[in-house]
Amino acid sequence: MNISEKGFEAIKDLLYKMADDQLIIGHRNSEWTGLGPVLEEDIAFSSMAQDKLGHSQALYDVLSQMGEGDPDTIAFMRNAEQFHCCHLVEYPIGEYEFSLMRHFFFDNAELLRFEMLADSSFEPLSFIAKKIKGEIKYHSMHADIWISQLGSASEESKIRMQNALNETFPLALGVFEKGIFEDVLKSEGIFEGEDVLKERWMSAVSQIIEKAGLKLPEVNSITPSLGGRRGKHTEYLQPLLDEMTEVFRIDPSAEW
């Protein structure tokens, strides 16, 4: 299928939001380095963080080929309002159950998203998606196992996990916030759209949540945390970016 000029604008918007999500969640997950509840989890979060960073880099690379800046400049030189990540990825790591629940909701959505994108009419994206979905499969497996384990392990773990679920669910719904080009993405076969993704995601996560003995809130009763896709962010994003770019901005033209 031929992609129109508008289609390319839509692809850029889609790539930015996905790459920004991956970069920011990778950055957050890396904050567990040295602090995990068991050494093995420390190592697991670090592995996933490295994958996420690699995914964001690969997506920024496609943007570079479409005429945007190089990945380092895109990632390290924009302000918060120029980012299109969702609110879910922006929050500080918090307690382990928060990070785990975020990881569960996010990676199940990402697995399905990249599975859908593997059929995209935009070949560079479908090529990357095929590779990335193979890696994310292990991320979602990791999350699913932990949710199942901790959802019913002890009274304390059950309460913690349910509270984390209640806290993260409105944020997780913000993953599916539509961008301004949603219709173009669908009509040109680039991406089937956020509604389809959300429906598949609900079906996937609700099964695991139920098996874990936890309860998903009634989705219609929840107000999703929206705005991220249009540059409106939580108070946490700009400080994260300030920290992330602290050294890079000493001299952006220098080779580090």
Binding site: T33, Q50, Q57, D72, L240, E243, M244, E246
Partner: peptide
């Protein structure tokens, strides 16, 4: 310094390096 490493290359390498130490 992982959260402050300048650029993708250094950030990825430092993450992997510190992860090795925990390993």
């Amino acid at each position: 310094w992982i959260t402050r490493a300048p650029g993708f290359r250094r950030k990825l390498a430092l993450m992997a390096k510190v992860q090795d130490e925990v390993g």
